[in-house]
Amino acid sequence: MKTSKPDSATAAKSDVVIDTHNISRVYNPDTIPVYAIRNVHLHIKRGEFTALVGPSGSGKTTLLNLIGGLDKPDQGRILINGTEITALSAGELIEFRLYNIGFVFQSFNLIPVLTAGENAEFIMLLQGKSKKERDARMKQLFREIDMEDKMDRRPGELSGGQQQRVAVARALASKPQFILADEPTANLDSKSASNLLDIMDKMNREENITFIFSTHDQRVIERARRVITLVDGEVASDTNVIDTSAPH
């Protein structure tokens, strides 16, 4: 692998999925202000496989929350595919997330009373997709995550790795603009983590799905093709990893 600085200036405007303009998030602004994120300026293009790294408290999860529309910056603007999400109302943001953003959480967060299949199609149900459409998509996704025979299992009957694969299927079900994954391998053993990364890597390469991870996990960092390092809420480094293993 080789590394180089990303050339955002030359990025085609239409290729930019996530565009943050000097965003800052400050806690306790009236007493002792603590900058969780400070003046972060980022462009993430379609199809990137990006890892947000940095020590605990560096602002990785906060940045993911801001990009995912779960939190609002105190300063700056965030554009997702050209839509300024920082200007959206709470209700508009919920709908925006439903149609544009996929989430994978550290602790899987599947709904325990639903089966794996029902969990994965949950977002499609919220979107009002037809049963035919949902069934076809579920069949495809569960084949891709190699869990076709476990669609009717409840989360409690699945291993951690299997649960996280269902969470990935759920995030992908609605074909979002990008997927935000917060420490997706943190609760997995090596084999499950490797398996999960294989699936996400394959989807990224074959379907050009954009993934942004926050992670401490070296295995994830090694797979990432762009690594953004945050220190004290600021971008300390932003490196493109030239993947020599890529087929093109």
Binding site: G68, L70, A90, G91, I94, E95, R97, L98, Y99, I101, F103, F105, N109, I111, F122, I123, L126, R170
Partner: peptide
């Protein structure tokens, strides 16, 4: 509460 936070994050409306 975590699950409700999760379904809200995924895009389940307040009405739902």
């Amino acid at each position: 509460s975590r699950e409700i936070g999760m379904i809200a994050a995924l895009g389940m409306s307040r009405f739902r």
